[in-house]
Design a protein around this nucleic acid. Sequence first.
DNA 1: GCCGTTTTCGGCCCGACTGTTTTCAGTCG
Length: 592
Amino acid sequence: MSNEQISKLLRNIATAYTIKNEKKFRFQIIAYQRAADFIKNSSIELQDYHKDSKLQDIPGIGTSIKGHLEELFKTGKSKQFNWALKGIPDPVFVLIDIPTLGPKKSYRLVNEFGLSNSKNVIADLEKIAKKGLIAQLKGFGEKSQRDILRAIKEFKEGKGKTSRMVLPLASEISDKIIDYLRKSPYVGRAYVLGSLRRQLPTVGDIDIAVASNNPKKVIDHFISYPYIERMIEKGKETASMLVSGGKQIDLMVQPPQAFGALLQHFTGSKNHNIALREFALKKGMSLSEHGIKYLRNKKSNIKQIDSEEEFYNTLGLAWIPPEIRENTGEIELAAKKALPKLIEIKDIKGDFHIHSSFPIQPSHDLGKNTIGEMASKAISLGYEYVGFSEHNPSVSKHTNSQIYTLISVRNQEIDQIKLRYKSIRVLKILEVDILSSGELAIDDKSLSLLDFAIVSIHSVFSMNKANMTKRVIEGLSHPKAKVLAHPTGRLLNQRPGYELDWEKIFKFCKDNNKALEINAWPSRLDLSDQLIRQCVGNDVKMVINTDSHASYQMDNMKFGVSMARRGWATKSDILNTLDYNEFMKWLKGGEL
DNA sequence: GCCGTTTTCGGCCCGACTGTTTTCAGTCG
């Protein structure tokens, strides 16, 4: 079973408990949802935790759920899970994925209309709504019926939160809306919060906070946005809309003197906020987007706080960077004032994964800008060094000596650039394919022309974990191979990436002076934050590269840095924060 | 059902908004 399937199963159990008796099962519901959340976001397959007897290491999985999961993995079913799900028809668990339909409404609809076919339940419900039958149910009305029809339509079209965007698209949309909001004189500070501020690899909706003493004017201005597709809701201090393209924008407004609490609240994550509020409760404080209530003094009003730093400080905590607000230990360290100093974009001194337009006749795609143009861009970014790493010349179309010649000519071009641009060091690299045998695509003689090679997988993705691990280690074993590029091969929203035995990879890299790449290409962002954090824990060095195929793409470095921050990486974990001489020392196998 | 720097028992975040109601249930984040 995949993590996705297991997560859905646990969520279904929470749904079933909600339908059966929400009050009685209140805490079980929370527990199952928490476990489901964590499993869904985990980049390690749950079955592997199980094989290594490490299920209890997962937050939210205690003795009960662990026992049920072990029974499920062993026998294919769990008595407890089956008992919990008993009596709730399967179509309920399909309808619940449609926004506005929760456990109660889904169950009512399935029962009232005898919907029994999971595969067709959405189409069946749509027909029923069109006949006007939903409006006749007690507790439903004409408006609910229209809302359900629209929700089904948007669900089918992937609108709202049912599809996630990569970071640059989300930033582009949010920039436009912030610019628009600032045209109103009633809008004070206006920031993008939520998962975009936390820099998740993909973003479901865009959350914006505004400080204003006149929230009504701000909200009216917000929903007058020219590219609005429809308004979702509108209240006294919040509003939501869909904009063209079907993306959802949520707005929250608070007065300037309470803005700090709103920044904290609306940045999330949900799990961070829950943990923070539990932490505060123990100190006699209750938190919300409006501020801090002191529970021991019932007469006191809510304390309003205008900055986020002050909000955390009032709780006795250091300010926590948004990227690590996921309740994975940050609150405990903030209490001890012992948070790591996360890497920043200004720490980056170079980029090693750049594809120029030099006609090297590569196995894969060529860049759009010349070596000179790319080097010039690197200088404008303030870099101390840059490395060119076009794909190796195509193996099927060239002999070894032709390949050798192509690389030599490219190197001559780099030498010319070195003479022209004295302010930057330029390295001769290539991105070399690891063939399915584990061999590198080009021979030793050609490899000897390079300062080092970045190696990567570009074919035969379907190998099993053991063989893929063997292949990668074989490829990295070559003395010239120093960096594994886009280590999982994932493409966000497109494919999950192949599986590797990370313990083996980490050990190999640490023992043999190899690095893993954090690829900053927006639809890769590979390594994931979780794997980065494991590298940090295992003292495995990383390099943040842009994989640019055009000079402007070198600006994508910030996304790689964001992933590194989400993975708790500091400057010392990332090799391209070193100055040139230190980096060359690492390259030659010297200790840092 | 989970969890532990006052706890292995007794706690468990907090509020906004909508539709269908006439004081609230359901959903969402």
